[in-house]
Each structure stands twice: as C-alpha cells, then as structure tokens.
Nucleic acid binder design. Structure first.
Lengths: 197, 197
DNA sequence: TTCAATATATTAACAGTGTTAATTTAATAA
DNA sequence: TTATTAAATTAACACTGTTAATATATTGAA
C-alpha cells in the first residue's frame, strides 16, 4: 500500500470515526454531513473527496460496529455451555447491544439505502450476522442430536426474525412500554423458540 | 357537529387524502409538506392551520390504512375454517398487504415519532393490530383445546414479531433477495410457529 | 348594502439538509 | 523559484419543515 493509499485510508478513518461517535451518541436522526465534518476537523465538502455520498460513509461503519458487537456477545456468552444454553446467551447479548446503542440498530436495520445493488454485500453482512455468531452452537445441537438440521434451520430463522421484530417494535413503537417488560418478553420468546418441537 | 367542525374535518380530509395517495404511490421517502399541499390544492402553510406538524398529519393516515388492511385481510381469509387455518390465512394476508403497499409498512413501523407521548394511542393501535385481526381465532383454538391459553399468548406474540421482522428485513434489507423466497419463508415460519408444542 | 372585525389562505423568510461547481490553499516536480 | 497538480474550502443550488408577515375571504353589525 503506497503513501497515497495510506493517507486516503487515514482520511476516511477520521470521517468514519466521527460518524461512529455521532451514531453512538445522538443517533441517526441528528447526523448530518456538516455535523460529521466538523467533528472530523474538516469542511463538509472534503467528505466528498473520500465518499460517494453520506450514506456510503454511514454504511462503512457497519463493519466496525459488528466487530464491537461480536466482542460484546462473545464476552457475555463465554461462560455458557455450548448448544442451546449458549444460543440463548448469544441472543440476549445481541439484543442487549442494540438496546445499549440504539443508533447501531437504526444503522443496521432502519437506514435507507439509495442504490441497494451497491450495498448488497453490507446488507448480506447484516442479515447473516446473528447466524455467524451462533452457527457453531446450532451445529453443536445438530451433531449432539438435540435437534434435526431441518429444525435448526427453521428455529435459527424464527429466532432472528423475532428478535429483529421485537427490537423494531420496542425502539420505534415503544411496545412494550418499559424495558423490564421488553427484556422479559425477549427471554420468553427465546425460550419458547428454542423449546419448539 | 356545527358548520365550523364540518368544514374543518373536510379540510383535514383533503390533506389526509393527498398524504395517503403519496404514501401508497411514492412512499414515505418522497413525501413533503409542499408535495402534500400541492396535491390537496392548497398552499403548504395552510396545512399548519389543521395539523400541528407534518408527522401529525402522516400518523392520521394510520386509521384509514388499518381499515383498508382489515377489509383486505377479512376477504382473503373469509373462506378458511376458524382456528389455526384462519390464523394462517390472516397472517399471510397481513404480510401481503404491507408488501403490496410498502408505504404503509413504513408508516406503521418505520416512521419516527417526535413526541412519542402524544402518539401513544396510535402506536398502541399499530402494535395490537394483528392481535385484533386474529384474536377470535386464537380464542377458538383455546376453547377447542387445540392449545392452552398460555401457549396461545406466546405463539401470538412470536407470530407477530416474526412477521414484522421478516417484513423489515425484506423491504429494508432485501433479505431474502426475491419475493418468491420471501413468500415461501413467510409460509414456513407461520407453519412452524403454529405447529409449536 | 357598507364597513369593520375576524378567520383563513398565501407569500416571504429562516434555518436546516445533501450535493456540486468554483475557488483558494497546499503539496509536488522541474 | 516557478509551474503543475492535488486537496480543502467557500459559495451556491435545490431541497426540507416551520413560522411570521401579509393578503384575501368571510362574517357580523350599522
């Protein structure tokens, strides 16, 4: 990587860092090109020398947040037994991360993409994220005959869709009204999905 | 209702009608105060004589769309036997409606609310909508001993969260990529949730 | 009917948004 | 040191939602 590439990556990094800070703090609503640039220490137009548009920049944060989330999930589920128990812990930690940083949930699931074709790899990354986190333990369940491969496949999807649906309804529609209720319902849903015949 | 109230309701109706048309057509992205007002045949500032802000106006469309959706769901599930079979048909029609009019999905689940307190009744309306549509048949399942009241409660929620999650991932994240795949997965999920022990 | 008071609708303006073109500043090569 | 290229900045455009000031109807009283 030549000097030019190094410098370019550094510049991109400044903007990405600023964007991440705003997303974690104020969230997606209060983000703006001028906002990001000010925090990065550059003029707003400079941003366009390094990113096609602001959505491009915003979506480049996905990878970083996924790494952070993965670290969190791994540490939260480390002491759990492989299989069902670990899947349960992973699912809970997954939800916990997005609740802790609502801006990341908005980024992962709510932020609109102008040209979906260009962002397809990132969208796939998002969709497969929970799979990636829990795949080992689903495989474990299959090999230990706790469930069939078919059952695992369906349950894995049900779990994913349910968690995303709950997160959406809670963070965007205040349903249920309190975090306590939400947290309990998350537990109930995880349990009953994993207990599915 | 005096003349003044009648006239005021008529004016509100013009703006609501225009908003509904845009939501159904171009969707939430391309909606704007000037856009709505032009279609309603008034200046953009006139809108503020009848609505606190544009979000207020937009959320007033929820009730109308729910009625439309309810009519659609009832007709699509009319010839199904009460209980499990009807719940299945209701769930499929519910999804079908939001797929047919993506703008309504955005309105129901994605549109942000500035002051959540003021919109709480509408948010409740949205969250309880599928419940309202299917409650009779869940009750039927309980009285005919197909499942316990406890099981029904959990399944009802699982179904709701799963459908909302799938709709979100498909319409906002193109996951899965084709409608065919999506539609099949919806069927699979409904079946396996209803078959849960 | 005519005039004043009120209600309603419109235009102008403000502060914000993303983005691009023109311009200035900095870095590089001769 | 100067000419050329690269990078960063300012100015501008076309939007957005919202409010204040203005113009236009509508109403009530003389």
């Amino acid at each position: 990587m030549g000097n030019k590439e190094i410098q370019e990556q550094r510049m991109k990094g400044y903007f990405i860092q600023a964007t991440k800070e705003i997303l974690k703090g104020e969230g997606l609503r209060n983000i703006s090109v001028r906002n990001i640039a000010e925090r990065a220490g550059y003029s707003y137009a400079t941003l366009y020398n390094y990113f096609k548009d602001v959505r491009d920049l915003i979506f480049e944060c996905v990878v970083d947040f996924q790494e952070e989330c993965e670290t969190f999930v791994l540490s939260e589920s480390a002491k759990n037994k492989p299989g069902i128990e670990k899947i349960r812990a992973i699912a809970k930690a997954y939800v916990k991360y997005f609740i802790q940083y609502p801006g990341t949930f908005e980024l992962f699931f709510l932020e609109k993409t102008n040209d979906v074709a260009n962002k397809q790899p990132t969208l796939k990354l998002i969709s497969n994220f929970l799979d990636r986190l829990s795949n080992n333990d689903w495989e474990y369940c299959i090999t230990t005959k706790v469930m069939t491969a078919e059952a695992a496949k369906v349950k894995k999807n049900t779990l994913h869709f349910t968690l995303v649906g709950m997160l959406l309804l809670y963070s965007n529609r205040r349903q249920p009204e309190t975090y306590k209720e939400f947290s309990e319902e998350v537990g109930n849903q995880i349990n009953s999905i994993l207990a599915m015949k």
